[in-house]
Amino acid sequence: MKTQEPAGTKSPPATGSWSAAWTTREIVVAAVLSVAVGVIFWTWGLLWATAFAAIPFPASYALVGVWMIGGLLVPYVIRRPGAAVVGELVAAFVSMVLVSQWGAAVLLSGLVQGAAAEAVFAGLRYRVYSTATLMVAGAFAGVASIVLDSFFYGYWEAYSPASIAVGAVLVAISGALLGGVVSKLAGDALVGTGTLSGLAISRERKRTR
């Protein structure tokens, strides 16, 4: 196994479950990427609590986009229905296990953000994974996150509707850039290492060349 990568994978055996479309390799790669993203989530949470702590409310949401990566990078690489939800939720779970200031509430954030991104990919029938798609999905997920947070943290009481709206715009941009563009770059860099051969992302790149 040391020199040879499992290149190319065929459709997995049908088992009747919805993950039947995923090959084992896709499942495990998605899991590993999600876990890695979970560590990023957790690290970003620490920064959020320290380095970014002094950034006031609506402006701080310009940094939230990083937390969308799970729901973007994983579907960008795997390109299967459910990948965005799985990626974001598993990453959130990992950040919870690593001890996060959001505890189990982060699972809900993960679910909501993942579902928002998933909606965009589903809307495009899981066929289009361009930079624009990732940016739109990131923006969607970002907006979903601020909506959820408004309930969790009482923004609607503590802040004016205008500043929440500014926050929503900022988080959408952040989701598009820190989430979408970063995921795109990371996915492409990984393809460059040759380790993703056989997965949808490298098959597509080969076709377009």
Binding site: M1, E5, P6, T23, T24, R25, I27, V28, V29, A31, V32, L33, A36, A186, L190, T193, T195, L196
Partner: peptide
């Protein structure tokens, strides 16, 4: 990530 993905492929196999 590249290392982790490669390992993931092996475990999957």
């Amino acid at each position: 990530l590249a290392g982790a993905v490669r390992r993931a492929g092996r475990v999957a196999i």
